[in-house]
């Protein structure tokens, strides 16, 4: 067990920024999904799942293709 902890400590310089960036991006996108309920396609639950569980490709797809604005809610 002690061995595992040492291993974790050794990789902490990598893990801390990685986790901050990935979790930060996921949470930021999730908040955006909830606060702007207008999508080009799909619904809120779908986008929340995509954004939270597909790391960094999920938020990217949401911001580039999924995010709609208030005025173009035609579909």
């Amino acid at each position: 067990m002690n061995n595992d902890l040492d291993l974790l400590l050794e990789y902490l310089p990598f893990l801390i920024p990685l986790i901050i960036l990935q979790v930060g991006l996921a949470i930021f996108s999730a908040i955006h999904v909830i606060r702007h309920p207008y999508y080009r396609f799909g619904n809120q639950v779908m986008w929340l799942l995509i954004v939270l569980f597909i790391q960094f490709i999920g938020p990217l797809v949401y911001f580039v293709f999924g995010r709609g604005d208030r005025h173009s809610r035609a579909n």
Binding site: P17, L18, L21, L25, F56, L60
Partner: peptide, 17 residues
């Protein structure tokens, strides 16, 4: 349109990975 944010975050992640 959050392009700056996405580029900075994703390429930092790649850099660390």
């Amino acid at each position: 349109t959050y392009k700056l944010l996405l580029v900075v975050v994703i390429f930092s992640i790649l850099g660390i990975l």
